[in-house]
């Protein structure tokens, strides 16, 4: 009887050890996202192909941003500053807005709350030291999935 319990404890102990090992190897996405991120591109899976031929990449990105982002709080932002206390400053050309951010799920959902508790959710597809990719479902008149890519321009943000 004692032997079987020892075996069980060993297996569970191994499971816990594996968990601790993985967690110690990992970077917490909540900490990794902190810092200043600059928008690189806006892409849309159903972007008009003719536009791609006619115009350069930057204007395509802006075209997509105007098309699908008009109803989003992030529309005017070019720089996103994530602070540790759940504050996010969205900065654009003559534009600044303070909103709050949280991570949900297993660290794969970015939730942005603004004004009178309006909430937007973005899928955090990629998060590394210098790259952040967000995906989100667009609204009904431009159905599809949009993708925002950022590069980290400043890993530290001043405390507000």
């Amino acid at each position: 009887m004692k032997k079987i319990w020892t075996q069980y404890l060993l297996v569970f102990g191994l499971g816990i050890a594996l968990f601790i090992f993985l967690i110690s190897m990992a970077k917490n996405p909540e900490i990794e996202i902190e810092g200043e991120w600059s928008e690189l591109t806006w892409e849309y899976e159903k972007a008009d192909k003719n536009e791609t031929i006619k115009q350069d990449f930057t204007s395509i990105s802006n075209y997509v941003k105007d098309l699908i982002g008009e109803n989003l709080v992030i529309h005017k932002a070019e720089k996103w500053k994530f602070y540790p206390n759940g504050k996010l400053i969205l900065e654009g050309n003559g534009y600044e807005k303070e909103v709050s951010w949280h991570m949900k799920g297993r660290g794969n959902i970015l939730e942005i709350k603004y004004d009178n508790q309006n909430i937007e959710h973005y899928n955090l597809t990629e998060l590394s030291d210098d790259k952040l990719v967000l995906n989100f479902d667009t609204d009904t008149h431009t159905r599809g999935i949009a993708r925002l890519t950022f590069v980290k321009t400043n890993p530290y943000v001043k405390k507000i």
Partner: peptide, 22 residues
Amino acid sequence: ILASEIVKGNFYQIAVVFSWIF
């Protein structure tokens, strides 16, 4: 999800999902 996170090499998510299944 665990399989997909293993493929991506996201250790944090692997640990979290593994602990949930466990």
